[in-house]
Design a protein around this nucleic acid. Structure first.
Lengths: 213, 213
DNA sequence: GTCTATATTTGGATAGAC
DNA sequence: GTCTATCCAAATATAGAC
């Protein structure tokens, strides 16, 4: 039997107001930085006084948490489906492109979701679980395509977040690092699909030329 | 003619106190996070009252600036000299290892030097110039070893800072990403020393490039 | 639910005595 | 140079009227 929740105009209104508050908070964070968020500013932006917010959120961190949850939802909701894509390179490009675009188009959101920069804030277990699920689907994708080299997933996350980080830190709004993405995927695939060398590669110089010392 | 500055016990003492203050600030940042620094705490740690700090620094940002300058000095002072190293791979491993170790061994320092996370803070031009110099020496190293592929330097910085970032964010104190460093260097060199393919590798037409805005 | 008023804390920074 | 005393601003959060 389908569970059709009875509509409750009161709680609907309440949810709408909560969403409005969260949206105002995002706008402020995008403008002034994630850490600069203040309840006064949020309240003023939605036409309230600061204490009124406490009717909707228990604390400032509670607002951060709602923002976190919303951000994760946004990420998973728009994740491209690559299950029908046979070409690994193509699929990975698609996923990588989605990730870096998602991150760089809203640095404040990136900071909240992927870095740990707000002093006392920890996302709620539910929201966090959703993001862990997403990463595990990604791990499954690697597995399905035979990317089993030890550390391959970690190398991939380092590479993509590195591009995002440099882009945001050193060329905000530009594409100096973003445009390296396809090359990065190729580079990574060459690494990940290559069997790890039996004997660790030239620790010592492969005899360049003569002069032995 | 050699410029031997006359010793001035007063200013020597003053410099020593400044250094003491900066060191106290670092300790607090390492413990509580970079953004949590407060003048009161710094003062208490050096046995002063907060206003006394203003005899040594004009503002809180002035302290951050001294910390930044000190951090940059530390980095360049201990930079390994690879000019005598003939093997590119070996040299790059050395430099990369130095960089990621420097960054991960003190995340607060990494945050101040390489990320832009303190709201109103901009490093002074002198300190900033020193760090730019360091990067340019690195660019010269690339040039000298024939690493001229477009974007190679940017790819390298993305890769190394990505490892640092993931390490700090997701495995602080561990080595889950650090131990991938040698592989990362190999992966990068395979990419950078390989001529860019004439026609983009994969079969399907390169997915629509990110539209410029 | 929203407001006013206020508590509380915590910052950075200044004035002026000693 | 260092202190005490203080200012000023901003922040989160609570109490209670309406």
């Amino acid at each position: 039997m389908l569970d059709i929740p009875k509509r409750d105009r009161r709680s609907e209104r309440r949810e709408a107001t909560r969403a409005e508050i969260v949206e105002a908070a995002w706008e402020l964070c995008r403008a002034d930085g994630l850490a600069a968020l203040s309840l006064r500013d949020v309240a003023r932006r939605v036409g309230m006084q600061a204490p009124s917010l406490y009717s909707y959120f228990a604390s400032k961190n509670d607002i951060y948490d709602a923002m976190f949850a919303q951000g994760v939802q946004e990420f998973v909701a728009a994740e491209p489906d690559v299950s029908a894509t046979r070409c690994l390179r193509e699929a990975l490009r698609l996923l990588a492109h989605y990730f870096v675009t998602f991150c760089t188009e809203d640095p404040a959101r990136y900071q909240l979701l992927f870095q740990r920069t707000i002093p006392g804030f920890e996302p709620s277990p539910e929201s966090f679980a959703t993001s862990v699920d997403s990463l595990q689907r990604f791990a499954a994708f690697f597995e399905a395509h035979g990317l089993r080299r030890a550390g391959a997933l970690d190398m991939y996350t380092a590479l993509t977040t590195g591009l995002v980080d440099q882009q945001i830190s050193n060329d905000p709004g530009g594409d100096r690092w973003l445009r390296l993405l396809d090359d990065a995927v190729d580079m990574f695939l060459a690494y990940a699909t290559q069997p790890p060398p039996k004997n660790p590669p030239p620790k010592n110089p492969p005899p360049k030329k003569r002069t032995r010392k």
